[in-house]
Design a protein around this nucleic acid. Structure first.
Lengths: 176, 176
DNA sequence: GTCTATATGTTGATAGAC
DNA sequence: GTCTATCAACATATAGAC
């Protein structure tokens, strides 16, 4: 599970095999199939675990200010970049059309959850007077999410710390 | 070539096979190998063709104003979204670590070219007084590029027209 | 330049013993 | 719950005829 997650975020759903998981665990691939009948089941489990982790996180952040919540969200991407990975949406999203249906559904639900939360944080911050922006909260949220997501991708392609500069800019841009 | 490009932008380098190309063309896979000895050669050709197209494009845009140039750049993403694809960087970047070395190099060079051009357009626009932003041109360019790139990804995952709203917001944000 | 034929490896997956 | 053994399908790639 943990390994599958790392492998997916390292290079995607189609780039890893049961052998990549069973070998490091010093187990046979049949053992993996016992826990996850098909590869789609494994992929789905990874998505849903990530969704669940996110829901737990934002629950823990409930008492923070909108700015602190946004900072905490950005820090998720920082952590991922330090492991030289991309986020699960960036890893699975581009191959969306080639994913099993059950993974597509879960991925779409995940995007809904993330977008709704960021949007709500921005709305609250705007109402509190800490954030200031002209556009709809959802549009502003989408700019932040998409930029962070692809910053992780460009981090690896360019070898530069793109996510560092973009995340700072994105936050500064909406500070009142 | 054209087909390989479409297939890569549809779901990535690892998701298509020689059969996906030879069948629609009503040819045998050996015929493809004649033109591209290895799959890596084919992938490299797709990247370099895209790079070349981009260099030709910005050459044609040379006489436009910085704002028009930025608009033209954004329109590239609009066109891609209408075909329900992602850009080649979004398709190949997440799988970067699993790509053949020759493709990695070309992809890194492509990112350098794109980032440098957008950054230069923003610099010119700022000098001309049409653009206004606080941060380094490269950082501002990176926010725009990453947001557009991942907007195409989220377009497909969410089924919504994310790239429409984000691109408008990104341009409005830097207008003087 | 495309074909047939084939080599060689890997994939996800299953049956049945322990 | 993990093993051995095996499967069919598919992958990339090559040799040699036309």
């Amino acid at each position: 599970m943990y390994l599958a997650d790392q492998l997916i975020r390292a290079s995607g759903y189609h780039s890893f095999s049961y052998a990549d998981i069973s070998k490091p665990l010093e187990v046979k691939n049949a053992a993996i199939h016992y826990h996850f009948a098909t590869k789609a089941d494994l992929g789905l489990a990874v998505i849903n675990q990530t969704r669940n982790n996110f829901l737990i996180q934002i629950e823990e952040w409930a008492e923070l200010s909108p700015l602190e919540q946004l900072q905490a969200f950005v820090n998720l991407y920082m952590d991922i970049s330090q492991n030289n990975l991309v986020c699960f949406m960036g890893a699975l999203g581009p191959a969306y059309t080639s994913l099993p249906d059950i993974m597509k559904e879960a991925l779409t639900q995940a995007s809904d959850e993330i977008r709704a939360w960021v949007s709500s944080v921005l709305s609250k911050g705007k109402a509190d007077g800490i954030f200031s922006f002209q556009n709809a909260s959802q549009d502003q949220a989408d700019v932040i999410i998409t930029s962070l997501l692809a910053s992780l991708i460009l981090n690896r392609v360019t070898g530069e710390a793109i996510v560092q500069s973009t995340s700072q800019l994105l936050i500064n841009n909406i500070l009142a």
